[in-house]
């Protein structure tokens, strides 16, 4: 597998090596088909205690909890949660705004691709399944969940070909994802979230309502945070083509304030919905961000 990994641009061996120690756990019960390490709502064989129930004739005798019988003189069966695998859907924003790099080492899209590849690798590596969905204002590409590294190949190859284009609509993409994904799954959203925070949150609510475990990776170029440019500049919106002439020094503080509010708002609401929210600029190494989610 290591040899094969060398061939993927966004999953280099060095990164895969660092991710060997990473493990992703989910907060909510999953609805996986295979036995694995994630708790599910159904009961089964595992070490994680769920409940005691009365013995019914026909139950295997070996399941009677004799220690309880010794204390209470009752036959009870010890039940445990079933541990299943998780289905991870990585949603990658490939809208036009992601193709931006000013202060960072790479574009947001490149960074997001590394992150998506890493997430899929880690999930598959821990016997979960991973799928890839790219979107801008709609779902663009969908790669079925796979549990093997070989199965990731189409998705990883697609990452190398995918280009940023079109205006983004995160809310619409999330609604579509919620309709597509059945059962409780692990949703990873990687985007710059350059959309009204209320609209984004409507999409989050849909996923939350469907019982999805959601992790949000908010990616921005460092320059988007501090506007290190200077002088009179005509800015052209990469998605809407709207132009705005500003004196950077003049508007910087107001801009930064608005960006921070946006981030703060998303973070706060993600916490309210028990979603993991991780913010990063493109300077941060991808494996560190993954490890941040791991622990």
């Amino acid at each position: 597998m290591a040899n094969e990994q060398e061939t993927y641009k966004y999953l280099p061996a060095k990164l895969a090596q660092k991710l060997q120690v990473a493990g992703i756990s989910v907060r909510k019960p999953m609805a996986g088909m295979r036995q694995s390490q994630h708790r599910s709502d159904s009961l089964g064989a595992s070490v994680e205690f769920a409940e005691y129930r009365e013995y019914h004739p026909g139950d295997p005798l070996k399941r009677i909890d004799w220690s309880v019988y010794a204390r209470t003189d009752r036959y009870v069966i010890r039940e445990a949660f079933k541990e299943v695998s998780a289905r991870c859907f990585v949603l990658l924003d490939v809208s036009r705004s992601m193709d931006f790099s000013h202060s960072g080492p790479m574009t947001k899209l490149d960074y997001a691709k590394y992150l998506a590849a890493a997430m899929m690798f880690v999930m598959v590596n821990q016997n979960d399944s991973a799928a890839l969905i790219t979107f801008d204002n709609d779902m663009k590409e969908y790669f079925e969940p796979t549990t093997t590294p070989m199965g990731l190949k189409p998705a990883l190859q697609h990452l190398e070909e995918a280009e940023a284009a079109g205006a983004g609509n995160i809310e619409a993409a999330l609604h579509k994802t919620a309709e597509l994904v059945s059962g409780r799954s692990f949703i990873v959203i990687i985007s710059d979230f350059l959309q009204s925070s209320e609209e984004v949150l409507r999409g989050f609510h849909h996923l939350h309502h469907d019982g999805m475990d959601v992790t949000v990776f908010h990616i921005m170029d460092p320059s988007e945070l501090t506007l290190p440019m200077s002088g009179l500049t005509e800015l052209k919106d990469m998605e809407s083509d709207e132009k705005l002439t500003v004196d950077i020094e003049e508007v910087r503080d107001m801009y930064v304030m608005q960006v921070n509010r946006h981030i703060e708002y998303l973070q706060k609401n993600c916490m309210n919905m028990q979603m993991d929210y991780l913010f990063s600029d493109t300077n941060k190494p991808v494996h560190e961000l993954i490890l941040q989610r791991s622990f």
């Binding site: 931006f100 170029d221 440019m229 500049t233 800015l235 919106d237 709207e242 705005l244 946006h262």
Partner: peptide, 21 residues
């Protein structure tokens, strides 16, 4: 001579002050 550049989104500028321009 003013600079021109593509920027991911101008929404934060307009959000800060719709009459900025």
């Amino acid at each position: 001579r003013q600079k021109r550049m593509e920027f991911p989104s101008v929404m934060f500028f307009l959000k800060a002050d719709p009459r900025m321009h």
